[in-house]
Nucleic acid binder design. Structure first.
Lengths: 218, 218
DNA sequence: TAGATTGTTAATCGATTAACAATC
DNA sequence: TAGATTGTTAATCGATTAACAATC
């Protein structure tokens, strides 16, 4: 039931590798060693080699890694080349911004529908798509079979909407509501974002930045 | 130089405790044991007790934890009761949404200025504040001494703007640009968000959800 | 007092780092 | 060939879990 044994720590680093390699590629760099890359990314060369070797040997002894090839391979591993039809639930401030701001197609997602419970919003055009009423959700899903839902709704709505969406065929959630979404279907995946928690983490770090209570080393 | 020895893993869980305890408090629950809380939060009771004991003994044997008190204590540890004056750099889709959507004051931040390099945006009102031109940034900072900056700017702009902001007294960054911000001043903290990486993580998980390659257990 | 549950130490587990033989 | 750098195994480190004595 568990994935192919690759730990979540490694998985969460893949997008970062992909991003750095993409940047290098754009800058016209052709090859790189794990050592050089480790310096750029602020981690160890060992870790890079370990991480990559979860998926296969992409390098060459004495040479390093071909950036174009490695970038392509990691993209394939992540799955960016297969498009997933995606709906957005909640077209408020944040939902609209996400719809307009994210480069979905470059990341394996195609936004195909936007829904909001506020009738005032219905018909508004966001990111080239008309906002539909929540009432249309069922029909729309039966006709268009989206598989991914982005939730930009209040936290109270999330636990109500999510199971309904699972029944309509959604198998992946990108959840921005301040609610820890957990779905018990083993074939549904959830990525919680929690901007509020991120901001509080910053708050903690600012608060404890260099306070009086320093014991030991300077 | 390092903080008071509390690991980042623990720190990142604090906001989540704070959120769950806040919800319980709102629902009128008065006390809870680490066991009950662990079930709600989907982690172990051991971990909760370990985490909390990094900061002190807030519970009582045979009883559990007083929710109101624990919530208050964690808030104090995070530092939500001290306000940090904050500026937003970049008033595009995402920046505007963040400004309007986040409940800053509940999280220890007070938004005091919004800046954008696009002259067209100047004067526009977002979250009750006028958008200012980037040219005003220096004067504004010297007069108002904000300490936190939220970056909602393109990735190419981030490495240019950040050092300038540090010089102007910024000691904390909430960074939404697709760029790994790293500041070498030991007294400046950075919280990178990376929505793109989050979306790619979802992509990976959807891709590897239940593919052919299942070896061993079902 | 008896029951429950903490705070804390010890054991386990997993993730990161180091080392090095294989090889380009 | 000699030099460089990988892939991979072994060692270390840190984080999570288990256990239990302390105590409300």
């Amino acid at each position: 039931m568990k994935k192919n044994g690759v730990s979540l720590s490694v998985i969460r680093r893949l997008p970062r590798y992909y991003r750095f390699l993409g940047d290098l590629l754009q800058n016209g760099v052709g090859r790189i060693s794990s050592k050089e890359l480790s310096q750029k990314m602020n981690l160890t060369a060992s870790q890079i080699r370990q991480d990559l070797n979860c998926f296969g040997g992409f390098g060459q002894q004495g040479y390093g890694y071909n950036i174009e090839q490695l970038h392509r391979e990691i993209g394939r591993i992540i799955g960016v080349d297969t498009m997933h039809d995606t709906i957005l639930i909640g077209a408020g401030n944040l939902g609209s911004a996400i719809a307009a701001h994210m480069n979905f197609e470059k990341r394996g997602f195609r936004l195909v529908g936007i829904f909001d419970s506020d009738p005032q919003k219905t018909g508004e055009i966001i990111a080239g798509l008309p906002v539909r009423s929540t009432g249309e959700l069922e029909t729309f899903c039966r006709e268009n079979h989206p598989t991914i839902a982005i939730l930009c709704i209040p936290k109270t709505a999330a636990p109500k909407v999510a199971p309904q969406l699972v029944d309509l065929g959604i198998t992946g959630f990108w959840n921005f509501s301040h609610y820890d979404l957990r779905v018990d279907h083993s074939d549904v995946v959830v990525e919680n974002v929690h901007l509020g928690d991120s901001l509080l983490t910053l708050c903690y770090q600012v608060t404890h930045n260099r306070p009086e209570e320093d014991e030991g080393e300077k």
